[in-house]
Amino acid sequence: MDWLLAARMQANCLARPVNEAGPGGVADVVRRTGGLQAQTWRGAAYAVRARSTATTLADVATAQEADRSVIRGWFMRGTLQLVATEDAGPLLGLLGPKLIKDTERRYGELGLPDRIRAEAADVLENHLLAHGPSNRAELADVLVRAGLIAEPKGQAVYALIRHTGLLGRLCYGPGETWVAVRDWLGKPLVLEGDPEDLARRYLTAYGPATARDFATWSGLPVPLARKAVDAVATTSFEIEATEAHAVDDLPGCHDVRLLGEFDAYLLGYQNRHVDLPKSIFPGGGMLRPAIVRAGRPIGTWTHATLAVDLFEPADLTQELVDINRFSGH
């Protein structure tokens, strides 16, 4: 298994293949990985650092807010992701309808039938087109005034914002605000996606991996995921009686790397939490900053103090120096 983890670490760009500075380097990382987890902005930013040598924390914000070559919204599995802007439409075209269908029960519990959601998408988009970036409280007031929800609190507000995002009509703007996509990008998204193209991108960034790994990462149904993987894989391996697929035969990365919270590398597979200690995966949906070597977790660290807790000895000098460079300290 050691060779598998090292190969996956290299596939996921943790050998730091991107040497371009500025927002161009940020966009290159995001394209190569097929998207980065972005439940927290800091987590997405430090995921970029772990895969590049010259980008800075400020570059990540510039790429999303000024350059707009990357976009933050709900994509794979319906979770917040940072994806290349040109990938947003294909991803939502492929994943959006299933994500909405999978949320139907929750919409019902919140009292949000089709009619309310459709009207809310129009109301939210029109407000954002007229007023620009708006935060949750402002959008909640808009929904109350439109008579679509009874009060500006509770989970219905976020559910309607997210639903409008899954339709490709809004995304995150500056900070914790939302914007209308066709205003932010200058044109609407074209919602057309190809499962084989997504499978190829996944195997490039996560292989060797199984069809079920691809289904877990993307949110696609397993039969469709398997068909797409079978169509694009160029090499296969038998790992513990399970067939794993790849598009490249990678020698592997054996470096030490400090990853931010919710790093994509640790979330890219069906068994993603197997063998992760509670210090990294405490439960409750949290995934804390981790230290990996040759693809295997060997410790944790904290952003605020750069304090580390190693499970086994490792030289972190270069990584700690680079984190200070990245954050501008």
Rank of each mutant, 00 (worst) to 15 (best):
W74S: 02
I149V: 14
A205C: 09
H163N: 08
A159Y: 00
N324P: 00
H127N: 13
L148Y: 08
G24M: 00
E109P: 02
A120W: 05
T216C: 03
Y107F: 11
E125R: 05
Q81R: 14
F75N: 05
F262P: 06
A50L: 08
N324Y: 10
G299P: 04
M76I: 02
F75L: 02
W184Y: 08
W217Y: 11
R49H: 10
R162A: 04
N12C: 07
L160S: 05
G35F: 09
R293A: 04
R226L: 15
E196C: 06
V83I: 15
H245V: 10
T56D: 10
R145W: 15
G25M: 04
G35D: 10
N271K: 13
L99K: 00
V142T: 13
W74P: 04
T33Q: 14
Q10D: 11
G252S: 06
A156H: 09
R201I: 01
R117D: 12
L99V: 05
G78T: 04
D114M: 01
A211V: 10
I280L: 05
L189F: 14
P152N: 00
G35Y: 10
L258R: 02
A307H: 06
K101M: 12
L191A: 01
A244Y: 06
R288M: 08
Q81N: 13
W3D: 05
L82I: 11
R42N: 07
I323W: 15
L316D: 11
E65I: 07
L95K: 10
A44F: 15
P282T: 10
A150Y: 14
N271Y: 10
L80Y: 05
V48Y: 11
G207Q: 01
T210G: 14
Y265C: 08
I291E: 11
P277S: 02
T53I: 01
A307Q: 15
D197R: 13
E312H: 00
F262E: 00
A47Y: 12
G207T: 07
W301E: 02
R136H: 06
L170W: 07
A45Y: 13
G173V: 09
A7R: 13
D183M: 00
A304S: 12
L224M: 14
P97I: 06
Y172E: 02
T33M: 12
C171L: 08
T53Y: 04
A228P: 14
T235E: 13
I161Q: 01
T164H: 11
R212V: 11
D67T: 05
